[in-house]
């Protein structure tokens, strides 16, 4: 148990999950034409994954840079922000992540239980359009990561390797006037706790 770096296990699992979640959010919220998405099966549920190489590489590079922070339990939130043409957020999908201190682990059930939990989150994302208003045309997206100042050093090396630099987010991309808060899913497992909710702007168009 000591040999297994649980931070790395959690980071692998979460980054794989976040990749699926980001693709699905972009599909469900129609940020891109549905024609670039392909039906796939992840966590035993049908999902939609983009097959556009440039977009896929962007998402992979983003998560590759976030991974070192998750490994060290320094990523407090990962936020998928959908913005209108003026780059003002209309929706923020907030993944709050925390890794509890390891108390008791039974590896047999650990991963299968975690898979069930992540499956439930994916299912909630796939039907979230039922509780969200339509977005205006011409939306795009970005990904924010909330961390501690000292932790940003942990991202520096991977940014250079991937040639994918990060900057401090603009206030306009972070703040949202009178957001409506829509909880989607909370999950608790032995090695990670996660809460997913959406902040939706009151007047989108």
């Amino acid at each position: 148990r000591q040999d297994l770096n649980f931070g790395q296990v959690v980071a692998d699992i979460l980054c794989e999950f976040l990749e699926v979640a980001i693709h699905l959010i972009l599909y469900v919220r129609e940020v891109y034409p549905s024609g670039i998405f392909q039906k796939r099966k992840k966590y035993n549920v049908p999902v939609q994954m983009s097959c556009h190489p440039e977009l896929n590489q962007y998402i992979q590079d983003t998560l590759h840079c976030v991974k070192p922070l998750i490994e060290k339990n320094e990523a407090e939130k990962v936020v998928v922000v959908i913005m209108d043409k003026e780059h003002h957020p209309v929706e923020r999908f907030v993944f709050e992540i925390s890794q509890p201190p390891l108390l008791s682990i039974s590896s047999e059930t650990l991963l299968s239980h975690l898979e069930q939990l992540l499956r439930a989150v994916i299912l909630k994302i796939s039907v979230c359009d039922a509780v969200l208003d339509n977005n205006p045309p011409g939306c795009t997206f970005t990904v924010l990561v909330y961390t501690r100042e000292a932790a940003t050093r942990n991202m520096e090396k991977v940014q250079v390797i991937k040639d994918f630099p990060w900057i401090v987010a603009d206030e306009q991309e972070v703040l949202m006037q009178e957001p409506r808060l829509i909880p989607l899913k909370t999950m608790t497992s032995d090695i990670v706790k996660m809460q997913l909710y959406v902040e939706e702007r009151a007047h989108k168009s």
Partner: peptide
């Protein structure tokens, strides 16, 4: 910054809808 958190984002933006549409034929 919110509550001491350091909020970071990628410098580069993702491809937008038009850029995706323009490359569909190539793909």
């Amino acid at each position: 910054k919110s509550g001491g958190a350091h909020i970071l984002k990628p410098l580069m933006s993702p491809p937008n809808r038009e850029e995706i549409l323009n490359t569909l034929l190539d793909l």
